[in-house]
Amino acid sequence: MLKFTKDHEWLNIDADTATVGITAHAAEQLGDLVFVDLPEVGAQFAMGDNAAVVESVKAASDVYAPVSGKITEVNQAIVDDPSIVNSDPGGAGWFFKIKLDKSAETEGLLDEDAYKQLIA
């Protein structure tokens, strides 16, 4: 189940775990990424907490935890080569996997059509 946030993140939710990344729109707006800081595996976040940082040549931006939960896996490949986020934001450029504390939180997320309207 693919969901989005108004903060330009995507979540691919499979059972109780969501894979999280930033949208193509966000990656384009940021421009060339040169640095990614990811959370530790095992870190616990509440929805809306700063979970990761991305930096383009020009500026730093926060990536929020789109739902509450515990980090189960992070994508070291984008730390080693941040340009992967620009070239494949919805695929190889994923950031982390988070085990959901409250599945009800996903109800407030946007579906793909709603997100497309947001950025139109």
């Binding site: 903060d7 930033i22 500026a59 931006s61 926060d62």
Partner: peptide
């Protein structure tokens, strides 16, 4: 995510 570079 947030863009801290947002113009004002």
């Amino acid at each position: 995510m947030s863009d801290s570079d947002a113009g004002a």
